[in-house]
Design a protein around this nucleic acid. Structure first.
Lengths: 331, 331
DNA sequence: TTGTACGCGTTATCAA
DNA sequence: TTGATAACGCGTACAA
């Protein structure tokens, strides 16, 4: 035993774990020895005895996206507060990346994974629940088999659409990062909920969306510029007078490209972002945007993970947070 | 033994570690059994036998800053390529945060740490070299006791200053995130090297810097706006005709505040950023900026860490990368 | 080529 | 209140 404080392993173990049945005198002696040797228990050995690794994996598409950077920040802050370390895994939108992350659970490098990007079918992901805890953050999980934290996308997009309609806009274009426009029952899919919030509000107002002005797979500022170019090629009759961009980055691209072509924003075309990234308030025309409560989402997700890990909670929760419409100039 | 493939532990171990002295037949049988059971060796047990944790800690002030997000991205990419996991630690500019990270080494949660933000004195940090490998990334280390990867700050700022002087600017203001303007011998401190590159180029041209127009502790876009306000309060005689901002964020703040006050950029005041963040090219007046080779820095730092960890390299290296002046509109 | 036995640091159990 | 001992999964020295 490396703890040559002159006492037995069990006494030392009891002191470390604050267990009873140790005299104050011995407790002192052990403490002193620990301080003197700069000793600290080895997690690896503990893990072999059944306690976990103390690591939480957080899975995001990429951390260079400001939205996810803030999410990771919030998760890391919370985990570290509860003495859990944060392992970061980027998927880059690839299924393989996500599988790699899930394998961390199987290999017991992490006790749980917070999924902020779901690439694979639930079929595949489910298999890994036997190895560790999973929490979905800013993502839905169809079968409600794992806890999830997300924003009320439907209501947020509803609010935004109502706002645009209230401003008198007639033809509203729609951009999304999704690969296709899908409509599933509410609460199953984040993209579907957003689209549903938009399109159902439109129909309630007796309007409908023009299929030619629904753009999919739109992610970056460059994508936004491209879409704006397409829009500007349309005749004035066809041209939308408002756009719900899929993110602030896309919105920023559209604003920049629009201004460069002499379009007035919001007078000619109103542009509405999503996320409320720092970028949103600092471009030429500050963005009106649907604010996602990123910090809260991350904190709740991390706390839920810790609840399951540390407190051994077996039940799953579903926490929904309100989105807020932040009104600036672009719409 | 959990490996109930019907063979002995050592045979299994030999297969797992690709060691010789195993017949092809047995090797096959073990492989099959492993696949069938979805078995994978437990790192925790290996660690007890002396191999490391397989984790690399990466220490940044905050990941929400785009610069560091890209650095972490690049490091994580590289580490994962070599089967190392990336633990993220944010210091928020606090010494305590850095110590916490270094303690990961002591507790053997990580085999090494890549320091992208050095908060404490080297005196303190040195103590932790006994517990694991350290690599400084985008930071200098005074005593050259650990490997470091960084940009040639002096030359970069020299180039930028020469550029501004070449444009005929007479009074150049200077912003830095550092707590004070320090001048140390070249190669010891990143802030000092930058400042030296600026000020020495100035003197070579027979000019000097106005102490009243050297701003310290300038980090954020808000800080940039504040500095611009101060500058606009000066009389036209005193007012600088160019500014080297400490970062693109600061530069962006200055551009926005300047434009809002009717200043023409770069005609009235030229503004030069640092980093070349995505932000730089998308604000109203695209930023001329000193580009840091972030992706390369991160990759080199990670590779150096792996060289030390996996290959057991004991020597330290010092890799310096060129900074590039990206010329857009703001200067 | 193959298998056995031991020890790494920790916790749980049981005996003193 | 204490301490001795077994067990976790792995790698390795050594024996077969």
């Amino acid at each position: 035993m490396a703890k040559l404080s002159g006492l037995s392993v069990s006494t030392v173990s009891r002191v470390i774990n604050n267990k009873p049945h140790v005299s104050e005198a011995k407790r002192q002696r052990v403490q002193e020895a620990m301080d003197a040797l700069g000793y600290s228990p080895l997690q690896a050995a503990r893990q072999m005895r059944g306690s976990g690794s103390g690591n939480v994996a957080v899975v995001v598409p990429t951390i260079t996206n400001n939205f996810f950077a803030h999410l990771v920040d919030s998760i890391e802050r919370t985990c570290s507060k509860y003495a859990y370390r944060t392992l970061i895994i980027q998927t880059y939108g690839e299924r393989a990346g996500e599988e790699e992350a899930l394998n961390l659970l199987r290999m017991q490098h992490a006790d749980g994974a917070i999924l902020c990007a779901i690439e694979n079918q639930w079929e595949l992901i489910r298999k890994f629940t036997q190895y560790g805890r999973l929490v979905a953050c800013n993502e839905y999980n169809e079968d409600h088999e794992i806890s999830m934290i997300c924003g009320r996308q439907y209501e947020g997009f509803q609010k935004a659409t109502e706002y645009l309609l209230g401003k008198g806009h007639q033809r509203i274009a729609y951009c999304t990062g999704a690969k296709a426009l899908v409509l599933q029952p509410k609460g199953l899919n984040i993209d579907s909920d957003r689209y549903r919030g938009f399109i159902e509000t439109l129909s309630k107002a007796g309007k409908s969306a023009d299929p030619d002005q629904m753009f999919t797979r739109i992610h970056t500022m460059e994508d936004g510029k491209r879409v704006m170019k397409k829009i500007l090629n349309l005749s004035l009759q066809e041209r939308p007078d408002a756009v719900i961009a899929g993110s602030d980055e896309v919105a920023a691209g559209m604003v920049i490209e629009g201004l460069a072509n002499g379009i007035r924003i919001p007078e000619d075309i109103a542009i509405l972002g999503v996320d409320d990234q720092p970028l949103a308030s600092c471009i030429q025309i500050p963005l009106t945007t649907i604010r996602q409560p990123i910090a809260q989402e991350g904190e709740y997700a991390a706390k839920e993970m810790i609840r399951q890990l540390r407190d051994g909670a077996e039940d799953t929760i579903r926490k929904e947070l309100d989105l807020e419409l932040v009104i600036r100039q672009s719409a």
